[in-house]
């Protein structure tokens, strides 16, 4: 395992298209539910323990090399009620796969691209990419969990003109929650071979799903999701 590979994969500047997505923050800001650092923190904490936990579980399972990535991909569909969010996850998966194959060429990534010409879901690609980079399930889980909060935090800096120092302090305050979510995700992923995909977390956030669908219908928006 290489710490350097983890830094490259988790870097916000890794060219995988994530910067174009707000993780539901744009809809929450417009609805007046996120207005500053405290509500951003609440938002991120809620997203982390729901969407973040689900993505981290899937990424960890993919990183373990759980056979049947098609089944994992299907699980993302079942865990994501909003069609707009499913579409966004596939688009992000396609972009990450392109970047991942160029960065860490691997037969597994090539196979994933062949199996999903329209794009596999992002957490499945993330876990497979982590594996190609020589990383393990915990690394994949941390990457997935972290980006469910770093995306909104960065977006809110642009959306509200929030002080970037404050936004970063929010992320630091989520540290213990990130550890907890990544650990739970890895435990669940290890149970998959025995218990099947039902062992993976399925936590949902109704307002994120509702907001995601509504946001996709806006005529003008700053972020893609």
């Amino acid at each position: 395992m290489s710490r350097a590979a983890l830094l490259i994969l988790a870097d916000g500047r890794f060219p995988a298209g994530g910067h174009a997505h707000s993780g539901g923050a744009e809809a929450a800001v417009k609805a007046g539910r996120v207005t500053g650092a405290p509500s951003l923190e609440d938002f991120c904490r809620g997203r982390l323990h729901t969407t973040g936990l689900v993505s981290a579980g899937l990424a960890a399972a993919a990183a373990l090399g759980a056979d049947g990535r098609a089944a994992l991909d299907e699980a993302v569909d079942a865990h994501t009620r909003s069609l707009a969010l499913r579409t966004a996850a596939r688009k992000l998966g396609r972009q990450l796969l392109r970047a991942g194959r160029a960065t860490w060429p691997s037969p597994e990534l090539d196979a994933l691209a062949r199996a999903f010409p329209k794009g596999a879901h992002q957490p499945v690609v993330l876990g497979t990419t982590a594996r190609a980079a020589g990383l393990g399930p915990a690394d994949a889980a941390y990457c997935a969990a972290y980006e469910t909060v770093s995306g909104p935090a960065t977006a809110v800096v642009r959306l509200l003109g929030l002080d970037p120092f404050e936004a970063t302090a929010v992320l630091a305050r989520l540290g213990a929650d990130l550890d907890e979510v990544a650990a739970a995700a890895v435990r669940a992923a290890h149970r998959v071979p025995e218990e099947g995909l039902h062992a993976l977390p399925a936590a949902s956030a109704p307002l994120l799903e509702i907001g995601g669908e509504a946001h996709a219908a806006w005529p003008v928006r700053l972020f893609a999701s």
Binding site: R33, F43, R45, G46, R47, A78, R81, H198, L207
Partner: peptide
């Protein structure tokens, strides 16, 4: 043979933090 929907929701005291926040139930 396909799972169409698989969703979990936890709310109330003892649920993971953030359940009543702006991302979940507000």
């Amino acid at each position: 043979d396909r799972v169409l929907l698989d969703q979990e929701l936890a709310c109330g005291p003892g649920a993971p933090a953030g359940w009543d926040g702006p991302a979940v139930l507000a």
